[in-house]
Write a protein that binds this DNA or RNA. Structure first.
Lengths: 196, 196, 196, 196
DNA sequence: TATGAATGAGGGTTCATTCAT
DNA sequence: AATGAATGAACCCTCATTCAT
């Protein structure tokens, strides 16, 4: 009974979050109506405002949720120094697979926070920043060629993740693992036939 | 006289298009108001409807303008068969530079039709389709390794173009030529130190 | 135990009354929110409705409280007949001081019931009626000049009490006694230099 | 025809102002609904927002209108120095009559800006300030007794004007002239029988 | 005695669009 | 070619109040 204290409220809040997530993902911020969200949640409109102060507030909560989850994941994925050359590729593949797995497991949130939100820009730049750091460090350790500007490579990687998420992951064409492997192959080796 | 009438009308229409382009690029579709567009054009609201049937109509005209320009460019850039191995890289670089040049020269349109519009998806997929065709053909001719799935590579390339446009081109960090060269280097050679 | 229960309830009710009084005085009827009152009383909204049937009910209780207190005071202050001419001024001053003291001691209630409430009109007219009666009686006994229309004088006195309460009393500029003396001097003697 | 340019718009705006004035006077700010105003003006709700940016805006325009009119009147009524003793009374009566005339002629505005608005306080204090200045100057010239604190007298006068406006003027019991004469008699001579 | 959860009723405001001229 | 004036259709949000416990 003491366990049930506030349970219903928390459930209602979660229900609203889940429904809002779907609606925003499907229709975007402006075309999503509070009236529709509450209807799907079997509530009246004022009930919404018990749990969220405004339409923007719930939207931002969702974006932040996505944002935090992703950044945490990435930060916890810094590649430790001291790998042997042969270990690089599987390690990077693994990290990439985790990131793609996160995007794949949170499709609606990804749609909102990674694709359509104006602030997606911010998160993508943050991502690129962290990745660039990693790459540069590995470049200095001789794992990678000296020439590439790792800033540019990092942004490129983010762009690739973005597009392949939309076209392969969210369409169920490829799994996170497959996508990760292809990206790694592309970024490490390029597509050109080896010139002898 | 009837000539001049027609002239003025055409000028007004162009003015509206230009202003709408900026507004949409800056604020997005929903946050752009007809009232703001006409105010900046020194016109009243009904005047807008003389030239465009609706807000959506002018928006779509801009998107289509961007779309057509880009697709035309890409289609006219198919890489002719029969190149020697050494010619591939400069040729691809040249094509890429032209595309990036187009995006760079039409920044507001790019913002609208390539970044923020829901239909950007469509154009990106079309692009990827054409590019994949090219790549596969070249792959078959032995210019590229057999392993990579050129569908995936094409989408990746589009993603890279997207991100580097936003972060390097539109911020004046790099020129279209520089971006093109880096992309080509990355895609052809990868970043990994050559293993002997 | 049933005693204690009753006690706690009465205390809660008083707390609500006191807080509501302050809120109404500060923000007026419409801008005062039940949600704010109960928050300050450390209660939830339904608790409010245990003690008062509606927002209007608690408001009216406060207004009536003020109203009754003031009218009682005034009615108990009728000036007894048979005073000597010299006794009039101190007697009137004393009565006035009591009234002003009441307003001064009940600032929030005064704000509500005397200044901002639509029904303040009623109480002011009641006051003026009683005062006019008094004045007329004294006029007939020859204490006052025949010319002044005591109805008008009574309303004037109420107006003066109103304004001086707001500007002198509630701002702690003058004490009830000082205000009373000045009013009496003004009303009895006027401000004009005696023409010999 | 050129005369008619914008005529209809101006008329609609005036109509809205007039109707709003009545509604606010009758029901107060909060209980007045835009929906009611536009219904009485035979308009739809959005039309209101062509002419006024918000409910508050039209309300403030009315309050300011009242405020400005009254302050202008009072400021243009400063009593010139150099009057003879006998001229004071008729001169003051005349000024007072003009002020009361203004209140009487603008009953709804008076209700709004002098009685029910929170800012009525401000205007009353401004009024009292100007009046106090006048009185003090006249006091120094010997027209009035030395004892009265003219600050207090001025506030008193404002209070009297307030109450007599509500009870005599707006109820058509007395005319501005009659009210003015009674006020002047009261303030100059007081009500007490002359003590020889 | 009091709370968690929810609702009825409505109010102000915005914006694309149109009619008549 | 363009304007003055107005509207249809929503949408977000607030607040007093109540039900079940």
């Amino acid at each position: 009974m003491s366990n049930e204290k506030g349970l219903k409220g928390r459930e209602t809040r979660q229900r609203l979050l889940r429904i809002a997530e779907e609606e925003f993902a499907l229709h975007g911020y402006h075309e999503t109506k509070i009236s529709e969200i509450v209807k799907k949640a079997d509530l009246t409109q004022p009930a919404f405002y018990i749990y969220f102060s405004s339409k923007e507030a719930i939207y931002e909560e969702l974006v932040r949720q996505f944002h935090t989850g992703l950044i945490d994941l990435i930060e916890s994925s810094r590649i430790e120094p001291g790998l042997r050359q042969g270990e690089i590729s599987p390690r990077v593949t693994f990290v990439l697979e985790r990131i793609l797995g996160y995007l794949n497991d949170n499709r609606s949130l990804t749609q909102i926070g990674f694709i359509q939100d104006a602030e997606a820009e911010t998160i993508k730049k943050t991502m690129a920043g962290i990745i660039a750091d990693n790459l540069r460090s590995e470049q200095e350790h001789g794992y990678f060629r000296k020439e590439p500007d790792m800033e540019v490579v990092a942004h490129s990687l983010v762009g690739v993740i973005d597009r392949l998420t939309v076209t392969q992951l969210l369409t169920d064409r490829l799994s996170p693992g497959e996508v990760a492997r292809q990206i790694v192959d592309l970024f490490l080796n390029g597509i050109q036939t080896e010139t002898p």
